[in-house]
């Protein structure tokens, strides 16, 4: 220990911190989750256009319930890949809040876009709105979550 000076100790601490940060970059949800969510979004949009409102409501509640059951293990953000499980201490407890908040925000965006398209006279407004948001979720879900994590310091 006597042989280690402060510069070496500082370099070692930086090395350990870099390794830890590499692991924090693994926090997130699997790619399949985002594509599954995008597919569900699009299907619900189509249901909204072709089914009676009450059947669409039942399907939406069913989708939400299925999500709560099957995705609850993933929402912690510790199993983005099958190669590592980030520790609970490093992942923190705010990831599920960030994901659910993001999904609620996207629901609001979908409704607003559908209303705007409908007001503009577009046919099948809910399908177009759901398709747009599904593309955002599928392609940009991981990036949106990354930004949200930074905002909520999760």
């Amino acid at each position: 220990m006597d042989k280690v000076d402060s510069e070496q100790a500082r370099a070692s601490l930086a090395e350990a911190d870099r390794a830890r940060r590499q692991v924090t970059e693994e926090i997130g949800l699997p790619r399949a989750y985002w594509w599954g969510m995008a597919a569900g979004w699009l299907v619900l949009g189509i249901f909204g256009a072709v089914l009676p409102w009450w059947l669409t409501a039942v399907a939406t509640v069913g989708f939400g319930t299925g999500h709560a059951i099957f995705a609850s293990r993933l929402l912690g953000g510790r199993r983005r890949t099958r190669q590592i499980q980030v520790s609970a201490a490093v992942a923190g407890s705010r990831i599920p809040v960030a994901v659910v908040g993001m999904l609620l925000g996207l629901v609001a965006v979908t409704v607003l876009v559908a209303l705007a398209l409908d007001a503009d006279g577009a046919g099948h407004a809910s399908i177009w709105a759901a398709g747009l948001v599904a593309a955002v979720v599928g392609f940009g879900g991981p990036d949106i979550l990354r930004v949200l994590r930074r905002w909520v310091r999760a």
């Binding site: 070692s12 390794a19 830890r20 590499q22 890949t81 190669q83 499980q85 520790s87 490093v90």
Partner: peptide, 26 residues
């Protein structure tokens, strides 16, 4: 303390477990 081992242990300290392939790559 050696640099490689410190990185390896620091990586594992931030995880519950990691696959050999992940550690090798990182």
């Amino acid at each position: 303390h050696p640099s490689t081992r410190l990185s390896l242990v620091a990586t594992l300290a931030a995880a519950d477990w990691a696959e050999f392939a992940f550690l090798r790559e990182r």
